[in-house]
């Protein structure tokens, strides 16, 4: 399994964890009587910071663990093989395109809810949800392209 594949898998797992956290909190708010703006925006901020933080920490930890494993296997430091080559960049670009399309659809749906008379908090909640789902679909697309070929 290449280092890029492991990075994407780690990113996918962290995005799924953030999605679960977000949905659980939204459900709790709904159970307590509906969306409250201060709580929704606090949740927004937590989700965005969590995604950024988990991506950075995930990448660093993956790099460290892979380096240790490779050093144990080969008996030498192998830094230069953590390269991102043209195939990795092409797959990443295609994954970003899938994310972009997913997010655009999510934004459209969230705008439609506002047009149909739902409160703005519903639109904002759906916006962040579509952002998380866009990240997840992008990761899944990349994993699929690595398996199937470009």
């Amino acid at each position: 399994m290449s280092s890029q594949l492991i990075n994407i898998t780690v990113a996918l797992v962290s995005h799924l964890l953030v999605l679960v956290y977000y949905l659980v909190n939204l459900y709790q708010m709904y159970q307590e009587g509906g969306l409250v703006s201060s709580k929704v925006f606090t949740l927004w901020a937590i989700v965005i910071v969590a995604i950024i933080f988990l991506n950075i920490v995930g990448n660093i930890l993956t790099y460290i663990v892979l380096s240790i494993v490779r050093a144990i296997k080969t008996g030498k430091a192998d830094e230069e093989r953590f390269i991102v080559d043209e195939r990795d960049k092409l797959i990443e670009l295609k994954g970003v395109r899938v994310s972009y399309i997913s997010f655009s659809i999510g934004v459209l749906i969230s705008m439609l809810t506002f047009v149909m008379g739902q409160p703005p908090l519903v639109m904002f909640s759906l916006l962040i949800l579509s952002g998380i789902l866009a990240e997840i679909t992008g990761d899944i697309a990349q994993l699929h392209l690595y398996r199937r070929g470009v």
């Binding site: 290449s2 890029q4 390269i83 080559d85 043209e86 195939r87 199937r148 070929g149 470009v150």
Partner: peptide, 25 residues
């Protein structure tokens, strides 16, 4: 892979015709 500057997985993908390399590669 080391000689041409890509990963081993890319060479595997090229050999199994799952990836068409760029002209330069």
């Amino acid at each position: 892979a080391e000689k041409v500057g890509v990963t081993r997985q890319t060479i595997i993908a090229i050999e199994s015709a799952k990836y068409a390399p760029s002209l330069e590669l």
